[in-house]
C-alpha cells in the first residue's frame, strides 16, 4: 500500500508523519499539495493522511478553511469510494469539519493548549502512551451520535490512565466520554487527537505509535 500526506499551508506535522511512515515503518509515502487535486495514483487500498498543524492558520475555526481546499475535495471523493483516510490532530479537526466524521473538536476544557504524553486504550483493551498537542481537542457530539458511535464500535481510542482506567484526570482536554479517536460507520476514515507519528522512533524512547498505525491502517496488508 501507499501513503499520501497532504500538505496544507500551516501543516507542521507533515514531515513528522512522512518520516514516521517512511523511515520507522518502511512505507511508500508521497507528499500531496493542497492546491492539487490529483489522487489518481492512489487506489482504495492506499491511505491519505491529513497531518497535524494549523492549516491556513486556523484563525477561523480549526479545519474550517482546509475543508474547502482543492485537495480536500478529492480526499472526500476518495473516502466516499472506500479509500482509507487518516487524520491526526488538525487532520481530525478537518475530517469533522468536512463531514467525513461526526462531531466536532472544541476548545480544551481548561482553555489552554496542552502538550504531554497521555495514555489511550483501544477496543482490544490495549493501552498506548502517545503524545497530545492541541488547543482544540475536546471531542463533542450530541448524545444520539455518541450512543450510535459506541453501539457501532466506532470509538477507536479513549483517554485512560496508565492502568487503562477511564478517569477524569487522564482526559487532557475534557473530551466527552474520554473520546480520543473515532472512525466512520464504513471504517475507512479514522481521526484521532493524539499523535502516533511522534511515538514511532527508538531514539525518541517511545514506539507505541507504530502499532497504532499498523493495526489501524495496515491491518489488511498484514493479513495478506
Amino acid at each position: 500500500m501507499k501513503f499520501g500526506v497532504v500538505v496544507f499551508p500551516g501543516s507542521n506535522c507533515d514531515r513528522d508523519m512522512f518520516d514516521a511512515l517512511k523511515h520507522d515503518l518502511g512505507q511508500d509515502v508521497t507528499m500531496l499539495w493542497h492546491k492539487d487535486r490529483d489522487l489518481s495514483k492512489f487506489t482504495t487500498e492506499d491511505c491519505i493522511v491529513l497531518p497535524g498543524g494549523f492549516s491556513y492558520g486556523d484563525y477561523l475555526r480549526c479545519g474550517a478553511i482546509a475543508r474547502f481546499s482543492p485537495m480536500m475535495q478529492s480526499v472526500i471523493e476518495f473516502a466516499n469510494k472506500g479509500g482509507k483516510v487518516f487524520g491526526v490532530c488538525n487532520g481530525f479537526q478537518i475530517l469533522c469539519e468536512s463531514g467525513l466524521l461526526p462531531g466536532a473538536l472544541l476548545r480544551n476544557a481548561n482553555q489552554q493548549f496542552v502538550c504531554k504524553n497521555v495514555f489511550i486504550k483501544n477496543s482490544s483493551e490495549e493501552v498506548f502512551k502517545i503524545p497530545v498537542a492541541h488547543g482544540e481537542g475536546r471531542y463533542y457530539a450530541d448524545e444520539q451520535t455518541l450512543n450510535e458511535l459506541e453501539a457501532n464500535g466506532q470509538v477507536i481510542f479513549r483517554y485512560c490512565d496508565e492502568n487503562g482506567q477511564f478517569t477524569k484526570d487522564s482526559n487532557p482536554n475534557g473530551a466527552t466520554r474520554n473520546i480520543a479517536g473515532i472512525t466512520n460507520a464504513q471504517r475507512n476514515v479514522f481521526g484521532m487527537m493524539p499523535h502516533p507519528e511522534r511515538a514511532c522512533s527508538d531514539i525518541l524512547g517511545n514506539t507505541d505509535g507504530r502499532q497504532i498505525i499498523e493495526t489501524l491502517l495496515m491491518a489488511k496488508q498484514l493479513v495478506h
Binding site: 513528522d16 493548549f113 507519528e197 511522534r198
Partner: peptide, 12 residues
C-alpha cells in the same frame, strides 16, 4: 505543557 515540545519528532 502549554508549549508543543514534541513537534518535529527530534526531542529525545
Amino acid at each position: 505543557t502549554q508549549y508543543d515540545s514534541m513537534v518535529g519528532t527530534v526531542n529525545t
